[in-house]
Design a protein around this nucleic acid. Structure first.
Lengths: 227, 227
DNA sequence: GACGAATTGGACAAGCCTGTCTAAATTTGT
DNA sequence: ACAAATTTAGACAGGCTTGTCCAATTCGTC
């Protein structure tokens, strides 16, 4: 009844469940204590598992750390692409749509558990594992920015925006939308829903102030109507 | 001959020099290895000093860490205020002046040794020493933003800018000007002079695109003339 | 040159952590 | 219910680190 479609000979259930549990606990402890300060006993306790089980599953501390980062990277990237897919390509109200998009991106990818943990691990241990984080950089931000730049280019082509370099615009969009959250991020805090919304609103307004198409009076009028 | 004006009874020279040397080495090691991973022997070796001397000067590891953070905070804040004092209040060429200001701020306060180290320590250990970093937050970013907001308000009053909330504009200015450097910062790298200049240029252009006063054709003309 | 303070190198105890090993207990599939 | 695999608790060695102590040495000053 439990394993449904997969009649594998592998131990089908709580084996894998424990692996996940260990990786989750390890992510939490590595973030809180740093790699050197992280204690396997503590990870095991937090995962509700014996220390030996941690070693059985992951070999040693370093392999466990790598598994944690890969896991976080994968989940974060998945979330990011899912969110990018919701970009307003044919906007009805560009300002509102961009704000909603920014809030989604923040809440689902940057402020959630995985996002915060991954960011902190990158900042703390990025220099020690260059290839590991280079991989993240290419798969994550690299593609994110390209994808977003392509969307902006499309909006520009459709006459909604007036943009010089779409890649620059994409990076500036992120920077603006998070402008008011940076200190909170720096100290590892979680911004409230309201802070996220305000930062996104202010950021998008400034973004459109710089990039909204001005040659067509109709477009400008529409943008201003919602201010 | 060495101590010139101060005939104090205190050991006048290399005593203090060694204290500084130890704090500098400690900053470097704490950043590279994290608090838990930092090794007093390594700090002593990197400072060119015996381990005992480290303990003589600073008591224990935690006190040493606090001394490091206070030291970095103080120097960084001094640099930041010195740079803010160079803000172009009566600009001749607003775009060029703001770009130069942003580059100075970046090079002298954010990308230099102290700035990078302090940022990393805040990110890594900020949650463990709340009062220590709360102090930094108030004295540093808090005042920086206020000061910058006041300058922007003045520019707006003088008719150079069209700004809603000066505080928001100040935060967005920093965000825009660093938009292209975030990944580099995240991985602990040092951007090249050219990257800093490009990010500042793109950021200031977008900033002015959003906030440059548009009602006076002359101002707009002036701004565009240098694009 | 002589004095006192600071520094040094090294030994040292105590504690903590990793990673291994074992035998017993538990869970899982059949 | 049985057999195999997994998990557990605990002990354990080995290594590393912090912080202390001390005798010998160096440094700065008079």
């Amino acid at each position: 009844m439990k394993h449904g479609v997969s009649p594998d000979t592998f131990p089908p259930r709580s084996h894998e469940a424990k692996r996940v549990s260990v990786v989750d606990a390890a992510a939490s402890v590595f973030c809180r204590e740093g790699y050197a300060g992280a204690n396997i006993d503590l990870i095991a306790a937090e995962a509700g598992v014996s220390r030996q089980t941690v070693y059985n599953h992951h070999g040693d501390k370093e392999k466990l750390f790598v598994a944690v980062v890969r896991d976080l990277t994968e989940r974060c990237n998945a979330g990011i692409f899912a969110t990018i897919a919701s970009f307003p390509d044919q906007p009805t109200d560009l300002e509102a749509d961009l704000i909603a998009f920014a809030v989604r991106m923040n809440r689902n990818c940057i402020c959630n558990r995985d996002g915060r943990f991954l960011r902190k691990l990158i900042q703390a241990e990025g220099e020690r594992y260059p290839e590991l984080f280079a991989e993240w950089r290419e798969q994550g931000p690299g593609r994110t920015w390209s994808a977003l730049a392509a969307r902006f280019a499309r909006l520009a082509f459709a006459g909604h925006l007036s943009i010089g370099d779409p890649d620059v615009a994409a990076r500036q969009f992120f920077a603006l939308v998070n402008a008011e959250l940076q200190i909170t991020f720096m100290l590892g805090g979680v911004p409230t829903e309201e802070e996220v919304l305000r930062s996104a609103t202010n950021g998008v307004r400034t973004f459109l102030g710089a990039f909204a198409r001005r040659k067509s009076p109709a477009a400008k009028q529409a943008a201003l109507a919602h201010a």
